[in-house]
């Protein structure tokens, strides 16, 4: 790849991400404007009794009654400014809240992502290579079961077994209660991470495993594997030379494209485990009419999912000779 091509690819994606984020911000803003969410009412409820005059003043101050375009303009300026407005719930710039919560969510999703990817791919290979044998049949049933179980239910089950009955893991939060943030050790954080990560992984690895299984079966039944067999390649050589090569690509794409599901799943898992990440922040923002935070996280998650898809695209190009060539010809 020449430097010129890298720059051209970079600009192409830059344009895409800017247009995407603009579109998302417009649509999200319209949706919130149309929804019954009323930040002033929520605020009033939290401070107690407020006279109608005070309320009108507040509305005036917040610009609730300005025309929508002007409101969008105000918000958009805040984005350009870099703070995304002020969170009503946390009384801090939205970007600071996101930054803080994202570290927790990233730890959770990162663990889940790696765990479910590796285990899912490995199990999928085992199942595919042993198609319809006992191990495959049992694993397949487990996977189908896990696929159809809702995350929050699985989370509650894990809490019940491991936190309440066995007492191995804490019941919630990302750090022990009553300990200063500065004194929390990495082990304590990991200890709190295990259950939510497990719940999320159990959800997504089954998907990865079933996809990998099917893909491997397709590959093993292909003409080129038959020919490899005819040429005297052993089962192992076939797996190494043809199997992995042909299934790794769909698996990678699936894995990066799963960012969206991962994000969705983390909203549920974080709520069940009271884990202070972006997922629980977004539901709190929605329930408490914290419009700037809600919009901020929406934009952020769009960026996050875009990044996942972009990485999948770029990797595909690096691995598949056919796509590599079409990129080079562009």
């Amino acid at each position: 790849m020449t430097a010129k091509r890298i720059i051209s690819v970079f600009f192409r994606y830059l344009v895409r991400v800017i247009t995407l984020l603009f579109a998302v911000s417009v649509i999200a803003f319209i949706l919130v404007s149309l929804s019954p969410v009323d930040p002033v009412q929520q605020y009033v409820l939290s401070v107690g009794s407020v006279s109608p005059e005070q309320r009108a003043e507040l509305e005036d101050y917040w610009g609730v009654n300005d025309p929508p375009v002007e409101r969008f303009g105000n918000w958009f300026r805040a984005i350009i400014h870099g703070d995304f407005g002020t969170s009503l719930l946390y009384r801090r710039p939205v970007i600071d809240v996101i930054r803080e919560k994202f570290v927790n969510t990233l730890a959770l999703m990162g663990c889940t992502w790696i765990f479910s990817g590796l285990i899912g791919f490995g199990l999928g290979c085992v199942m595919g290579a042993n198609k319809n044998k006992l191990a495959d049949r049992i694993l397949k049933k487990i996977c189908l079961l896990l696929c159809s179980v809702p995350t929050f239910w699985l989370g509650l089950l894990l809490l019940l077994i491991f936190s309440v009955w066995l007492g191995w893991f804490p019941i919630g939060f990302s750090t022990p209660i009553g300990v200063l943030n500065s004194e929390v050790t990495i082990w304590q954080q990991l200890h709190h991470l295990v259950l939510p990560a497990l719940a999320l992984s159990l959800m997504s690895f089954a998907n990865v495993a079933l996809h990998t299984r099917q893909k491997l079966i397709d590959v093993l039944e292909s003409d080129y594997v038959l020919f490899a067999k005819a040429r005297g390649e052993s089962r192992r050589e076939i797996m190494r030379r043809h199997g992995f090569r042909n299934i790794i690509m769909p698996a990678i794409t699936l894995q990066f494209a799963s960012f969206a599901e991962l994000f969705g799943g983390s909203v549920l898992a974080e709520n069940v485990f009271s884990y202070p990440g972006l997922g629980s922040a977004v539901s709190a923002a929605g329930l408490n009419s914290d419009v700037p935070l809600l919009l901020g996280i929406t934009l952020f998650s769009a960026l996050f999912v875009f990044t996942g898809n972009m990485i999948a695209n770029l990797l595909y190009g690096a691995i598949d000779p056919q796509i590599k060539e079409s990129y080079a010809n562009e």
Partner: peptide, 29 residues
């Protein structure tokens, strides 16, 4: 298979789509 008896298969679908021709012709081992 592949040592004493060799097969010339019917179509291009018998070649691995993701492997270069040279590596496939040279074979494994």
């Amino acid at each position: 298979r592949g040592r004493q008896i060799a097969l010339v298969p019917q179509s291009v679908s018998y070649l691995d789509p993701l492997m270069s021709i040279e590596r496939q012709v040279l074979g494994a081992g």
